[in-house]
Design a protein around this nucleic acid. Structure first.
Lengths: 174, 174
DNA sequence: TGCAATGTAAAACGATCGTTTTACATTATG
DNA sequence: CATAATGTAAAACGATCGTTTTACATTGCA
């Protein structure tokens, strides 16, 4: 694992767990066990690092939800929150914390959410045998809702979302 | 309107729109048209101000969702996002940005989310004629999901959540 | 009239921020 | 062996942060 990937992984963990405000570059160097010079040589700046974290997280997250049914989608989300914890969507949090004023970050968030919507539309289509944009939007709401309600309700909420999705899907089926 | 309320209102607007990181106390004094001395005399500190903003927002938000049906609940949310915009739940954002390490803020968020859950349970019970905690949890997921998906999908998403809630409720009815 | 109270304007505080620099050690490779 | 690359340790940079202080103006009330 090269230095940049390591730094990105450490940064993702700290940013996610303590927020961007509370995570200074010195905390990062300490946690990663590198000098500030090395840090800056590899990641350029804090803003670049934030964007890189999002890009990497998108890769990891999207790989996790490469599934073929809505039920598997929520099962994958259950796995994710069990492994990664539930602190809300880091993409939306990052965008909110920067006020949307950082183009690189705004674009990383935009790309991720676009990919997420596309994936959900595909999964709904697989399950239903046809496209259903309205249902896909409802599933998206459940997905986003599970992610955020889990922050204070815990992982059980993902199961509730899963059950709700099942009901909605059942009703839309031929 | 007294000074403290005015300062809290201005702070809520800036915090919500640009994030806490990007909203310094000087921006607040400028936006409110007061001196920094007056600001600190009334709100104590930035942390206190953040907590006060949440308490005030809870009051306003909960007043808005004093409704008697699930459908009215989502209608109220539609109104809210039309008037206040959609930048995600400020409570969760604040908690995330402080890493949950600020007790006053963590408690304000906790109180709000507890109240929200209670309200939803009540509304579901009114609609259904009986308590249904599982359904209430699903409605909570839809509510939270609508709030956050609306950030990138716009207000239309609240309508999707509303429709989904209607379907789930229909199915649970006697 | 005089005295609190309450406000502004603006400088200054120390701390901390992201970032750069200086000086030096280690390692891989020709 | 020499040299270039890559790392650490640590001081220092200027900017900005939240906060306090100094000095002065306005106002309401005894």
């Amino acid at each position: 694992m090269d230095m940049t990937s390591k730094l990105t992984a450490v940064a993702e963990r700290l940013f996610d767990r303590h927020g961007y405000m509370a995570t200074g570059m010195d905390r990062l160097t300490e946690a990663a066990g590198v000098s500030s010079r090395t840090l800056y040589k590899h990641v350029g700046s804090k803003t670049e690092l934030m964007a890189r974290v999002l890009t990497e997280r998108d890769r990891r997250f999207m790989a996790r939800i490469e599934v073929r049914s809505v039920d598997a989608l929520f099962a994958a989300l259950e796995d994710w929150v069990r492994v990664e914890g539930c602190r809300g969507c880091l993409f939306l949090r990052t965008r909110a914390e920067t006020g949307g004023d950082t183009p690189e970050i705004a674009e990383a968030v935009s790309l991720h959410k676009e990919a997420l919507q596309q994936r959900i539309r595909e999964v709904v289509a697989m399950d239903l045998g046809r496209e259903d944009l309205a249902l896909a939007e409802q599933v998206l709401v459940l997905f986003e809702g599970a992610t955020h309600a889990a922050v204070y309700r815990g992982a059980q909420t993902v199961s509730a979302a899963r059950a709700a999705a099942f009901t909605l899907l059942e009703r839309a089926r031929p």
